[in-house]
């Protein structure tokens, strides 16, 4: 599944990084501690978090993520959007919880092959 399919299928809104929505999703991860995500998120994953400041974009670039999802109606800071546009990292908005979306993604066949890879 590509990021654009995820947006269409689960009613997400792209707040930034719209040029990067054609990437294939290779897994999912939930976390709000940046070092923990940096160490453990699978390469190419969709990352569900409630962090909204600009440092999330560097983490997503370095872990080669497909997208960041801000759960619970959290809104990205303006600087976060600028960086995400520049790095082509989609920032997606979801009104429900990370848990709920993670369940839907898992049900749609997005599973992690191995942790951290």
């Amino acid at each position: 599944m590509k990021t654009q399919d995820l947006i269409d299928r689960f009613g997400l809104t792209a707040a930034a990084g719209k040029d990067g929505t054609d990437r294939e999703i290779a897994g999912g991860y939930c976390g709000d501690l940046l070092s923990e995500v940096m160490a453990n998120a699978p390469i190419g994953c969709v990352w569900m978090t409630i962090q909204v400041h600009q440092n999330i974009v560097a983490v997503a670039v370095l872990r080669e993520m497909a997208a960041i999802v801000l759960a619970m109606d959290n809104q990205p800071d303006p600087e976060t959007c600028e960086k995400a546009d520049r790095e082509k990292i989609p920032i997606l908005l979801y009104s429900g919880t990370s848990y709920e979306l993670a369940g839907k993604l898992y049900g749609a066949g997005i599973v992690n092959k191995t942790a951290g890879e």
């Binding site: 709000d32 070092s35 160490a39 962090q51 440092n55």
Partner: peptide, 16 residues
Amino acid sequence: EMGFGAGMGLPNMETN
């Protein structure tokens, strides 16, 4: 609050 301070930075650097 910004997601830093997990106490994992230096251990991650040593591990990797």
